[in-house]
Amino acid sequence: AVSDRLIGRKGVVMEAISPQNSGLVKVDGETWRATSGTVLDVGEEVSVKAIEGVKLVVEKLE
C-alpha cells in the first residue's frame, strides 16, 4: 500500500495530537490524520510507527 512507505519517515505536527484526540502531521509534503500515545504540540518532529486504517501512529522524535 502507498501508506506503507511512510513507516519510519519523519514528519511535523500540524495540529496538536493527544491520546484522546487525533491531529494532523505532514510527512513528505502530504498531510495525514495521526494518533499518538502522548501529547504532541504543533511544530514537534515525529516519526511514523504504524498505520491504522487511514491514520498514522506517530511518536516524538528523540
Rank of each mutant, 00 (worst) to 15 (best):
Ala1Trp: 07
Ala1Arg: 02
Ala1Met: 11
Ala1Glu: 13
Val2Pro: 15
Val2Tyr: 03
Ser3Gly: 09
Ser3Asp: 13
Ser3Glu: 10
Ser3Thr: 14
Ser3Ala: 15
Ser3Lys: 07
Asp4Gly: 06
Asp4Val: 06
Asp4Met: 05
Asp4Thr: 07
Asp4Cys: 04
Arg5Asp: 12
Arg5Met: 13
Arg5Val: 08
Leu6Ala: 03
Leu6Val: 07
Leu6Ile: 07
Leu6Cys: 03
Leu6Gln: 03
Ile7Glu: 03
Ile7Val: 15
Ile7Leu: 10
Gly8Ile: 02
Gly8Ser: 04
Arg9Ile: 04
Arg9Asn: 09
Arg9Ala: 08
Lys10Leu: 10
Lys10Met: 15
Gly11Lys: 00
Gly11His: 00
Val12Pro: 02
Val12Asp: 06
Val12Tyr: 12
Val13Phe: 00
Val13Arg: 00
Met14Lys: 09
Met14His: 08
Glu15Asn: 09
Glu15Thr: 14
Ala16Trp: 08
Ala16Ser: 13
Ala16Leu: 08
Ile17Ser: 02
Ile17Asp: 01
Ile17Asn: 02
Ser18Val: 10
Ser18Glu: 09
Pro19Lys: 09
Pro19Asp: 05
Pro19Gln: 07
Gln20Val: 12
Gln20Leu: 15
Gln20Ser: 15
Gln20Trp: 15
Asn21Tyr: 12
Asn21Ile: 14
Ser22Leu: 12
Ser22Gly: 10
Gly23Glu: 01
Gly23Lys: 01
Gly23Val: 02
Leu24Ile: 15
Leu24His: 07
Leu24Trp: 15
Leu24Val: 10
Val25Ala: 10
Val25Glu: 00
Val25Trp: 00
Lys26Ala: 14
Lys26Met: 15
Lys26Thr: 13
Lys26Gly: 07
Lys26Asp: 09
Lys26Ile: 14
Val27Cys: 04
Val27Pro: 00
Val27Trp: 02
Asp28Ala: 14
Gly29Ile: 06
Gly29Met: 15
Glu30Ile: 10
Glu30Lys: 09
Glu30Ala: 12
Glu30Met: 14
Glu30Arg: 11
Thr31Ser: 14
Thr31Val: 10
Trp32Gln: 03
Trp32Tyr: 11
Arg33Lys: 15
Arg33Thr: 14
Arg33Pro: 15
Ala34Val: 02
Thr35Gly: 07
Thr35Arg: 09
Thr35Cys: 05
Thr35Pro: 00
Ser36Ala: 13
Ser36Ile: 01
Gly37Met: 09
Gly37Cys: 05
Gly37Phe: 10
Gly37Tyr: 12
Thr38Phe: 11
Thr38Asp: 11
Thr38Arg: 15
Val39Asn: 11
Val39Gly: 08
Val39Met: 10
Val39Ala: 15
Val39Phe: 15
Leu40Ala: 04
Leu40Tyr: 03
Leu40Thr: 03
Asp41His: 11
Asp41Thr: 15
Asp41Lys: 15
Asp41Met: 14
Val42Gln: 08
Val42Leu: 07
Val42Glu: 07
Val42Trp: 05
Gly43Leu: 12
Gly43Lys: 09
Gly43Met: 08
Gly43Val: 02
Glu44Ala: 12
Glu45Arg: 09
Glu45Trp: 10
Glu45Pro: 11
Val46Arg: 00
Val46Leu: 02
Val46Tyr: 01
Val46Ala: 05
Ser47Thr: 13
Ser47Asp: 05
Ser47Val: 12
Val48Ala: 02
Val48Lys: 00
Val48Met: 02
Lys49Pro: 01
Lys49Ala: 06
Ala50Met: 07
Ala50Thr: 06
Ala50Asn: 07
Ala50Gln: 11
Ala50Ile: 03
Ala50Gly: 13
Ala50Tyr: 07
Ile51Tyr: 09
Glu52Asn: 11
Glu52Val: 15
Glu52Asp: 15
Gly53Val: 03
Gly53Asn: 13
Gly53Ile: 03
Gly53Leu: 04
Gly53Pro: 03
Val54Glu: 09
Val54Ala: 14
Val54His: 15
Lys55Trp: 10
Lys55Leu: 14
Leu56Tyr: 03
Leu56Ile: 11
Leu56Thr: 02
Leu56Met: 06
Val57Tyr: 12
Val58Ser: 00
Val58Glu: 00
Val58Cys: 04
Val58His: 00
Val58Ile: 03
Val58Ala: 02
Glu59Thr: 09
Glu59Pro: 00
Glu59Gly: 09
Glu59Trp: 07
Glu59Ala: 13
Lys60Asn: 04
Lys60Asp: 03
Lys60Tyr: 05
Leu61Phe: 10
Leu61Trp: 11
Leu61Lys: 07
Glu62Met: 13
Glu62Cys: 05
Glu62Arg: 12
